[in-house]
Nucleic acid binder design. Sequence first.
DNA 1: GCCGTTTTCGGCCCGACTGTTTTCAGTCG
Length: 588
Amino acid sequence: MDKAKVAEILEEIGTLLDLKGENPFKVRAYHNAARLIGGLQQDLGALVETGQLRELKGIGEALSEKITELWKTDRLKYHDDLKASLPSGLVEMIAIPGFGPKRAQVVHKKLKADSIEKLEAACKDGRIAQLEGFGEKSQENILQGIEQLRRFAGRHHYHKALAAALGILESLREHPAAIRCEYAGSLRRCRETVGDVDFLVSAKEKDAPALIERFVRLPGVISINAKGETKSSVVLDGGIQADLRVVSDAQFPFALAYFTGSKEHNIALRVRALARGLSLNEYGFSKAGKDKDEKGARDTGSVIQCRTEEDIHEAMELDYIPPELREEMGEIEAAEKGKLPKLIEKENLRGTFHCHSTWTDGAETIGSMAVAAQELGLDYLGMADHSKSEFQARGLKDDQIPGYIAETRKLDRKFRKLGLRIFAGIEVDILENGSLDYSDKILAQFDYCIAAVHRGFTMDEMTMTARIVKALANPHVTMLAHPTGRLLLSREAYAVDMRAVIEACAKHGVIIELNSHPWRLDMDWRWWKFAKERGVKCAINPDAHGTPDFQSLAIGVGIARKGWLTRDDVINCLPADKVEAVLKARRK
DNA sequence: GCCGTTTTCGGCCCGACTGTTTTCAGTCG
């Protein structure tokens, strides 16, 4: 059993315990463990065998035994028993917005409703409204929630959420009552996918209702889930949920930190505050241990004044932690010791690789791609059109290669005078047997080669891993394109052991592409952190099929920052003369 | 379930909104 499956089962146990009304802290222990195991970089098998599981913070005796049983026998009796004791439909039910474990328990007990369909039927014939603690309004909301769940299941791509957020942010900033405006949540943390978008505005208390009103009336709002004095929640066209909070300007940095999350990072920060005799919430610091009826930071103001998030971190004796790192993945410990990396900035990018042209399936000529790169202020542009097996993309046949390279060289000479270098590369297919789509003799003519899997996605993980690892051994391979194939939110996907692939890149000195194209965002930031630790370099590539795709470089920088990458880890931060040497290093 | 700079037992982060109540539980983030 792999660790993703172990994590999934632990997560499900947490949910089932929640449904049973178990101790919420026990529930949390399972959810935490699921997150911990799912994000583990070490080999889970090794931890199990050597009995080191218990050294992980959050894994005690009980969880350690259960994980070991899962790993060794592929099953867990505790999980099986738990599952057998509850109808599976209840788990699906609590995905309905506003409908949680307690209410699922009630409808199951009183109405024998054990599926979304039965719950829906009970709403439609009015039985839900009769239940104690429910009413007409609840019944209606459940129906709406079911509809929303069916229409807009799942998460949204970062770029799509960002586009929606920027429009809303602009409208909010235009409001005269708004002092400071920002988006927060997973979008600010640059997660590859985003569940909902959180907005935060600071304003005078009397202006809050007007801002809430502006928010719920924005074009693109298709329904309003909640609307209070300081908080509102809506659904945007396209199904993205957007939340707004209005706070005073003094509260703004605390609220921004709070709503940026992650939840786990926030909890860790609060625990740290408590250890310093402080209680931290979205309004400020207050003295810990106060009586219930004593006023908190919301009413009395923060006992430590903070103008920015930097001030808050300083008050906790931490270096400033950028939003991208706030995942409770070691950032607090690093900030405490002053060991946070100086993350890559968008301005650090000097050029990029992996661009397509009209030679294959790109929309523009190499010349117009070069002009756009120049306008972006880049120092170099790396072309990488498709290889011959990509016949649907008009991949370059052997006899086209001299022409392709000649045109690239000619444009290079022309643009070099204008301050832009153009490199002749190729995106070469990794065939099903792990060999490459061209002979070594042809590959040797390019400045660099990006190896990529484009077909045969259905092979098993071991075979796929062996296929890629074999290709990486070819000394002409400079980079590995879109490495996991786990194209997020897409049906295209293949199973691969990312750990083995990263180790192979480390061994052969292959650079891994951080593919910033919205549809190809694939490698989780935790793997980037691992790649960095293994000394593997990264190239942030737009996989551009036209000049608008260059915009996605900003997304790539965001993911790189999440992976704790610095300028030293990203080869396109190098100037043109140095990068050429890096591209050729393997062949020497 | 986990955990310990006071703890091996008794804690475990904190607040807004909704719908149902008439003081609060459930849900969410």
